[in-house]
Amino acid sequence: MEFTIGGRLEVRITPADVGKRVSVRRRPEGAGQGAMFTDTVGVLTSWDDGVLSITPKSGEGVRIAESTLVAGKVVPAAPARRRGPAASFDELARACARAWQPVESEPLGDWRLRAAAGFTRRANSVLPLGDPGLPLGEALGRVRRWYGERGLPAYIQTATGAEGTQEELCAELERHGWLREVSAEVRIAALAPVGDLDAEVTAVRLHREPDTAWLSRYQRFDTPGDHVLRVLGSGPSVWFASVPGDAEDGTPAAIGRCVVDGRWAGFMAVEVGPEYRRRGLATSVMTALARRALDEGASAAWLQVETDNEGARALYDRMGFAAHHRYHHFRAAE
């Protein structure tokens, strides 16, 4: 990894490079001049108040104090693979979870209890990837109490249909009186074909944060409080897309959200106003987001679609997305 120009180490990145793939070298905080350097390569996702956040291929963000940098440069994105992705359930489930993070969470063995003041089931349900460390009946009691203390219904998100998923846990939850409320498919595809679609993307605007106009199209909450913005803004490298509409209040015709996380790009919140449908706007939004994700080195795509959303399922079929597994939300009986 070469950083030198004429034998000198130089920092050649700035906050203007947020969103680009970078390589940086730093010394440990408080270390002397002779300390060993540490190198990090990944997407520069933020640079605020003297701290850089970089997301490498692992998806686990790294925070670096600006004062510790000794060198840095922008590097070309890794070439995207054009074949379809292969994914284990555990890898994909963890990528999905990183793309939609709660406001607070707590471990229960290998389970993760998640809450975000009730905004979406995904951010307010248990992610049971492993053993809770307790007999199941005791673990379910702990789950009920934890959510009850927060005034929330107790949900557990399970998965079926792929190797390593949780068919036995689903059966046990039903035996304990938990009720399955919602099911959805997790679909995957190669990312490059989505970015290569012949779609009109010139009107699609990409932003790092959801503005008031974007939020006016996203109809999943009553009031966009801090908890909503924290969930929407969570993830390694987050992008928001919008297509301007002709409404006087500035509400976009279409919106979308994408989280780039190592080799994965996750698509969420793709919505088109009823009066703008059948114009290809959803395809335009996803194509623009896919191209940005390809620029950041991603090569595979995932999304979630509810099993009764026939219009979206048909669109994703045409884009090459295939079902990987299903997830289900079980709710504790009153």
Results as ranks from 00 to 15, higher is better:
M1W: 01
G273L: 03
G130E: 07
T287D: 05
W111H: 02
R150C: 03
V243N: 03
E296K: 11
V18C: 08
E29K: 07
D48E: 10
A116C: 05
L136D: 15
G141Y: 04
L294I: 10
A322C: 11
A159Y: 03
P252M: 09
L191A: 12
R81I: 02
E91L: 05
G59T: 00
A159E: 06
M36N: 11
M286A: 13
A333Y: 08
E296C: 10
S183A: 10
V182L: 12
S284A: 03
R279T: 04
Q101S: 09
C96H: 13
T283P: 13
L206N: 10
A241D: 10
G141F: 07
T14F: 08
L108M: 10
I13K: 00
W111N: 00
F321V: 01
L206W: 04
E275R: 06
C170G: 15
E248D: 02
G245A: 09
G177K: 15
R26L: 11
Q304Y: 01
H328V: 04
A184I: 07
E138S: 15
L179N: 15
P128L: 06
D39F: 06
E66T: 02
W264S: 00
P128Y: 01
A190P: 05
A77S: 14
A254S: 02
A332P: 15
V62P: 00
A139F: 10
L129N: 02
T38D: 07
G130Y: 11
I54F: 02
A77V: 02
G19V: 13
R94W: 04
G273I: 06
Q101H: 14
C96I: 06
L232N: 02
G280R: 13
D261A: 07
R63N: 06
A322H: 06
H325C: 11
A269T: 11
A171Y: 03
T212Y: 06
A199F: 03
R12D: 08
R331F: 13
W264Y: 15
L140H: 13
Q304R: 07
D246S: 03
L179P: 14
W47N: 09
G151S: 12
H328D: 13
A171H: 05
S299T: 04
G235T: 03
V51N: 13
W178E: 00
Y327P: 02
V70N: 04
D211S: 11
V231M: 01
F119D: 00
G50N: 11
R331D: 09
S46E: 11
L294C: 08
R122A: 09
R331M: 03
A115Q: 07
R21L: 14
H207C: 15
S299E: 06
A117D: 14
R230V: 03
G130C: 08
R277A: 09
D222W: 02
R25D: 14
R279Q: 05
P102E: 12
